[in-house]
């Protein structure tokens, strides 16, 4: 038995790189299909919810692939796809200045106001 194998931590599902492995090559297939984000409405009356992403050559194929990948057990009645490059997101580094202004505005919540119980449900 080769004892050097045991020097690296080896968890189930995470086989370590072999020492002296091949150089990292950066491959980009010239015919690579773009990435799409998939949103699925699970039933009428509910919002479309982000399900994941997939690759497809165009929108029609993205919707067909989304059906096969994300709705094999009737998880959806409607699918939206959008090419990932068109999705814009807030910056997590700015989260503090971006979201904390709402933190000290407790008066925006109904529980801030004391109403006599005889008023009933309000």
């Amino acid at each position: 038995m080769n004892s050097t194998n045991f020097i690296q931590k080896y968890y189930y599902g995470d086989i370590p790189d072999q020492p002296g492995g091949t150089l990292q090559q950066t491959t980009q297939d010239a015919h690579a299909w773009p990435l799409w984000e998939v949103f699925i409405r699970s039933k009428q009356g509910l919002d479309h919810k982000h399900a994941g992403s997939l690759h497809a050559a165009d929108a029609t194929m993205a919707i067909e692939n989304a059906r096969d990948v994300y709705t094999r057990r009737q998880e959806g009645v409607s699918i939206w796809v959008v090419e990932s490059k068109y999705l814009h997101a807030s910056n997590p580094d700015d989260a503090e200045s971006f979201y904390t202004p709402a933190e000290d505005k407790v008066y925006r919540h109904p529980t801030f106001y004391d109403i006599p119980p005889e008023v009933g449900h309000m």
Partner: peptide
């Protein structure tokens, strides 16, 4: 499938 025994790994448990 579960991989080597815990006693046979010597690295820190970073994961």
């Amino acid at each position: 499938m579960f991989g080597p025994k815990d006693s046979e790994s010597t690295n820190s448990d970073q994961s």
